[in-house]
Amino acid sequence: MVSASASAAVSDGDGVAASVRRVAMRFGATTVFENVTFDVRRGEVFVILGGSGCGKSTLLKLMIGLHAPAEGTITILGQEIGALHGEARRRLQRRFGVMFQSGALFGSMSVLENVALPLASFTALPPAAIERIARIKLGLVGLADAAHRMPAQLSGGMIKRAAIARAIALDPPLVFLDEPSAGLDPITSAGLDALIVSLARDLGITFVVVTHELASILAIADRVIMLDREARGVIAEGDPRRLKAESTHPLVHAFFNRTEPGGA
């Protein structure tokens, strides 16, 4: 096993985009996970992975401030999100982008309007500038020709790409993606992976990605943490390629080598 312990605290705020410290989450008497600690470094693609029901999406929802953890603290872009309320929290939330698993595009707006919405809401740019910026974002995700389509007219892959375009509308330094390649065919999924990598490299965006798609993880992740339902927490952390090659933890080995736990 490469690393089963929590990463050391990084005090340099400039080098850390997000920091999770001793976080626990419980639903009633059920503990989803506890004592989860890790840092997301600026500019990296960080993947939270694990089997179904391990709490990946719950952890993401804690990080974006939709739920409060039962214990611990979460710092996003240098600010503790749990300590902020009202407008202060919304100001922080505007500094990162989120792509939800379903895309969550607004069905009553065209794709272009979806992407332009954050720009129109939070900047004083003239309409022509907003449209130009939104079109560049759509061009980046390969949807320039779908600008006037409604979300109901898009395929699953197009919805996810449009949702990414909306998430990067305000050029945030940090973007959270929940299951970006779930339910997509391998070609579309590979295209989405390439898009994430290129956005990280070219725009310097830090990505926190929740996924359990092994091919995507190996294609995009600089570092990963692996959650486990039985262990109720992090069972591995590090470079996914090293974890795949070197980890001796039966679950980690099974996950990265697609075998039964304890099997060959």
């Binding site: 560049i136 061009g139 320039a144 020709d145």
Partner: peptide, 22 residues
């Protein structure tokens, strides 16, 4: 160099002529 790269990316993204509005 980063800005130059970004401009190139934006040029590529903007090079695809969008279809006319409805």
């Amino acid at each position: 160099p980063r800005t130059v790269r970004l401009v190139e990316r934006a040029r590529e993204a903007g090079a695809v002529r969008p279809p006319p509005a409805p």
